[in-house]
Structures are given as structure tokens and as C-alpha cells.
Nucleic acid binder design. Structure first.
Lengths: 239, 239
DNA sequence: GTCTATAGCACGATAGAC
DNA sequence: GTCTATCGTGCTATAGAC
């Protein structure tokens, strides 16, 4: 919140029509041989990877451009050749991950058996928390802080996706395949429980001395979350 | 992560023995009349309240002391008379809230009926998310970022509390009063689902246009979370 | 495209009068 | 205790040589 919030339009790839300063993706003195393009893309990726790691631990304002450059193995100046500002790096990191973040929800099919489908969804979300904990934490930070940069995306793409899946869940309940539950609260519960293992990994480690790094713990987490959400914890004698 | 991490010992109330600079809590030129002490305490509280609101939205590094001073209705210099550094304010805010954050878990009694007790716990946690969303978000930010300042507290007090309650839950299961579930994963699930409504309020608002501010929504949230965790979502014909 | 050097400025923190 | 004024630092971003 401190200094600004995107003061000028960042000359990235998509938006602004008039970008005087040349950028690596675009034309340059050298012809863009496939080899060169690949180098450039690799460098961009290294920078974004480094930025993801740092932003996810310290947030936008807690990370300096110099740290990103160092972690990516480039000079600070060179980084500013690829990205016009720190905010532009931040947005690039977020938008690169959005699709992947939503993929598990997209993958749910209405025709599947609900209990199987939801079990699989939970498994996938925990796998994401396991393989991409930094991404999960960055989204968490961004949303907790009001998602100034993601809000629009949430209100359009995400809402559309969630509404569709909510209707699907309602259909399952209407067909007598699922207990009556508000679909949105169910989705929130699944998001919350699965992302918790990445976002609150520090707390879990402090309490248990382990985390999703440990495969056995990851399996136990998926198993317990599935059981709690699907079966509940009320005691039921074996029928 | 940027610049420092508590470079010098903050001359607050507890720790460091030698604090040359006088502080409002301690002796001053004026005798500490009850009236004066009360004024000072009120001011301190106003400052911490302002800091909580800002830190919870923008984190430690995204908040400036000038903003805190402005929100609290004091000058920046005056704020530095009460607190030696920004970090000291941050720590003071966190430690003021810790007890309250853990109170609902502490309140669970082993002799209670598990289903009732857990339902009540969920209700209280959602009430906390509703009445103290800023506190919940600040803890979320702090833990996501690795809880550099809370880690010790988590490893000692919190661990002790959680281990005790985990044993209690295991006792319920052993007594046939609760379905078999790993107590830690159950506690995580309850934390995650209930705190989600405060921490991800921005996302929920983007999706549904409402939140815990709305009492009806808050009731629906508590009701649905309780139902999901206690009963599960698998369809069961009425017996 | 990549470097060295530095401009420019916001911010945390302090000095010293009252 | 509170104020005005200011210092010093560390950071983002740019200029300009190569």
C-alpha cells in the first residue's frame, strides 16, 4: 500500500499499444532465431521463478528487486530490461500461475460419481499444495491483502467457473447422490482444508515437525481431509 | 526479509534490563495519576488498533509508520515516543491478540459430548472471524510468511495446547464417541474452514457479493461448516 | 543486451526546542 | 509528552557507455 499501485501502464506483452522501449520478446537488432528466443524465454522463466519464491515468503513490499536478480542469477539492471517495474514482475508471476491453480476445479466432470470426483479433487488440490507451495502461499498473501490485482479476475473467470461447478453440485444433491449442502460453502471448505497444508506449513511444522514434503504425511492429509468431508466425524456404528 | 530482522533489542516493557530512554508506561516527570495512566493506555490502544488494521491489509513492509500515526490520530514522532521501532509495534499487535486467538480451542472440555463441543468450537471460531477479521488476517499473513516472530510461541504454547486437545480427541474416539480421525488433521480442518471466511473474505465477496458482515451469511457458514465436518457430505437415506 | 554509475525519493528514526 | 525539522539509508528506476 505504501508508495503506489501501478502508476503507469506496464509495457508487457498484452495491453498497451504504444511501447517505445524495445523488449526482449519483440524485435531487436538481432534477428530472433529460435535459439535466441529460447534463451530469452529461459531467462524470463528463471526471473519469474526467483520472484515467485521471494514474493511468496515476503510479499511484494518485503522483496527487493536486487534479491530477485540475485536469485535468478542476473543483474538488477538486466532484470529491468525484461520488466518495466517490480509490480510488472509481480503481476506476471501471478497470471502465469492462475490457470494452473484452477485446473483441478475445472477438471471435475458432472457425470462422475460425486464421492469419487470430490475425493479426486481433494487429492489434486493437496498435490498442488505439495508441488507448488510457493504458488499457493502467494495467492494466499494476495487474497488476504484484498487481491488488488486479482479482484477483476476473481469476479469474472473464477466466478463463472465456480458458479458452474456449484450448479453441478446442486444437481448431484437433487439427484439424491449427495447430502444437502450449500455448494459454495462446500467448495470453500475444500479450498481451505487443502490449501492450509501449503499456506500454514510453518505452523504445521512447528506443531508436528513435518509437512507435505514427507510423502507419508501428504497421503495422510489427503486421506483425512477426504474422510472428514465425505464421511464426517460423527460416530456411526458399522451397519 | 528485506532489510533487517530486529537489529537491536526493542526497549519495550518486558525484556531488556537497561533502557535509558524513558517510556510512557514507566516513571516520568509527572506523577502517574490514574487519570494520566488511563489516557496513556487509551492512546497506546488506539495506536495498536490502527496498526492492526493496516498490517493486516498490507503486511509489515507494506505499511508505513506515518499511516499508522495518521489512522491513530497522532504524529509520527509521537508514535516513536511510545514504540522504539515499527517492528516493536508489529510484535505488540501480535502478542496482544494471541490469547484471544487461542481462547476457543482452550475452551473445549473433555467431558462434553464431542459433537456438541466441536459444533460449539466451530461456532466460536467463525464468530472470531466475524468480529476480528483483521486479527485473523494478520495471523494468516504472519504464518504464511514463516512466522519469524511467532515461531517460538507456536512451538511451545500452541504445541502444548494442541497436543493436549489432540489427546482429548483421541480419547473420544477410543470411547466410541467419535469416528476414527487423526486429531491433528481434524484440528487443521476446523481452523482452515473457519478462518477462511476472514482470510479469504475478498475472494468470497468477489464470488458471492457477501461475507461474514451479513449475519445471515455468517449463520449459514457456521451451519454448513458444522454439517460438513460432523456429518460429511455423502448421501445417506433417512434411517 | 548487459554493464557501471547514479539520480531521485520515500521511509524509518532522531535531535532538540518547547 | 508533543512538536518541527531533518538526517541517513536503502530502494526503484534510468542514463549512457560498451
Amino acid at each position: 500500500m505504501a508508495r503506489s499501485a501501478v502508476t503507469r501502464d506496464p509495457p508487457g506483452k498484452g495491453a498497451s499499444p504504444a511501447t517505445p522501449k524495445s523488449r526482449p520478446g519483440q524485435r531487436s537488432a538481432h534477428p530472433k532465431t529460435p535459439r535466441r528466443l529460447k534463451q530469452i524465454e529461459a531467462k524470463r522463466t528463471a526471473m519469474l521463478d526467483a520472484a515467485l519464491g521471494l514474493f511468496s515468503r515476503a510479499g511484494l513490499h518485503g522483496t527487493t528487486v536486487e534479491q530477485i536478480a540475485e536469485d535468478a542469477g542476473v543483474s538488477k539492471t538486466n532484470l529491468f530490461y525484461y520488466f518495466a517495474s517490480k509490480e510488472e514482475i509481480y503481476v506476471a508471476v501471478l497470471s502465469r500461475l492462475l490457470d494452473e491453480w484452477l485446473a483441478p476445479l475445472r477438471a471435475i466432470e458432472p457425470d462422475a460419481d460425486p464421492v469419487v470426483a470430490i475425493g479426486e479433487y481433494i487429492r489434486r488440490k493437496i498435490l498442488f499444495s505439495r508441488t507448488q507451495p510457493a504458488a499457493s502461499r502467494l495467492f494466499c498473501l494476495e487474497i488476504v491483502q484484498g487481491a488488488p490485482l486479482l479482484k477483476r479476475e476473481l469476479e469474472t473467470s473464477l466466478k463463472q467457473l465456480v458458479d458452474a461447478k456449484a450448479a453441478m453440485i446442486r444437481g448431484w444433491t437433487a439427484a439424491g447422490k449427495l447430502a444437502p449442502v450449500d455448494p459454495h460453502h462446500l467448495i470453500f471448505a475444500i479450498w481451505a482444508t487443502t490449501q492450509h497444508y501449503a499456506d500454514f506449513a510453518g505452523q504445521i511444522d512447528a506443531l508436528l515437525g513435518t509437512g507435505l514434503d514427507d510423502e507419508a504425511f501428504a497421503n495422510a492429509a489427503a486421506e483425512n481431509v477426504s474422510r472428514i468431508i465425505l464421511e464426517g466425524i460423527r460416530f456411526r456404528p458399522i451397519p
